[in-house]
Nucleic acid binder design. Structure first.
Lengths: 146, 146
DNA sequence: GAGTTATGGTTGAGAGCTCAACCAGCACGG
DNA sequence: CCGTGCTGGTTGAGCTCTCAACCATAACTC
């Protein structure tokens, strides 16, 4: 059962990663960051807020945003009220790239998971994931600040 | 529900990776490779066989084994019947390292997943994973030979 | 206010992964 | 046999991720 779990989750993850990389030239990480930004007011978020939402370490986010910035998808601006702080802003290009990537990605998710499961199973899986998530350590990641 | 799924599976994966790396200085990848080897007769497997079992690309496996070899956990030997071929053999040190790592890892799996779910849920999850896995592309990875 | 500690964020080195290119050795057709 | 194509496996470049160290600013304490 455990091996089944590993195999299944790995497969899903791997397929998603591959599809997104192939069709849109971005890792799922970046996709998720852009999704978070796109949902924020002004498509803008503090770096740390963004890190918390996506459950990424600050370091990881910093590297990622650096890369995305040079891709033209994101811009950094400084925070007036706290001079250490930084905002990340999703650019028009970024939004466009996201809009372009989304349908394929969503479709992949559907076809891998939702299409093959019964309504009951989807419900069950939701329940299970919620439980696991709540039971787990929080934050589970590289102790907050890293 | 989808976000729940992502959060939960990521959390599990991330915790496992971290625990293993911290306590035994190896990524889960290597752990799995060694498990496969430890279960094989003579703790020996052809590279390609090993790749198939762990669902890793040949390239990935090759890099991994190279690293593990210089860690002293694995040895390569050549195949007499097919001079292109190579065997990977789990060394005594490798076996010891695995034996050392296993309890903590297993405990982590239990505490993250099995302890928090009801027997029914575990059953359901098993069913779900089996379904997803069978429905997915096979092989899903970097088209066989890469 | 001055010194200390905490917080926001970045940086660099090291490690693993992917992808594409590659080199052997094998197998098959003529 | 000899070429042509497969198969087993390796290699190197480029990318992301982690971890630890770091800098600057903010907040707290006396």
């Amino acid at each position: 059962m455990w091996r089944n779990y590993m195999a299944a989750t790995r497969m899903v993850e791997s397929c998603l990663e591959r599809q997104l990389q192939r069709d849109s030239g971005m890792p799922t990480t970046y996709y998720e960051i852009m999704v978070s930004l796109s949902e924020a007011p002004d498509r803008t978020l503090r770096m740390s807020e963004l890190a918390d939402r996506s459950r990424f370490s600050r370091s990881r986010l910093s590297h990622a945003v650096a890369r995305m910035e040079q891709e033209g998808w994101v811009r950094r601006t400084e925070c007036p009220s706290d001079k250490r702080g930084a905002f990340a802003v999703l650019t028009e290009e970024g939004f466009a790239a996201l809009a372009d990537a989304a349908p394929g990605h969503v479709e992949q998710v559907r076809s891998l998971l939702f299409d093959v499961l019964s309504a009951d199973q989807i419900e069950q899986l939701g329940e299970i994931c919620a439980t696991v998530r709540k039971a787990g350590p929080d934050p589970y990641g590289p102790a907050l600040g890293v």
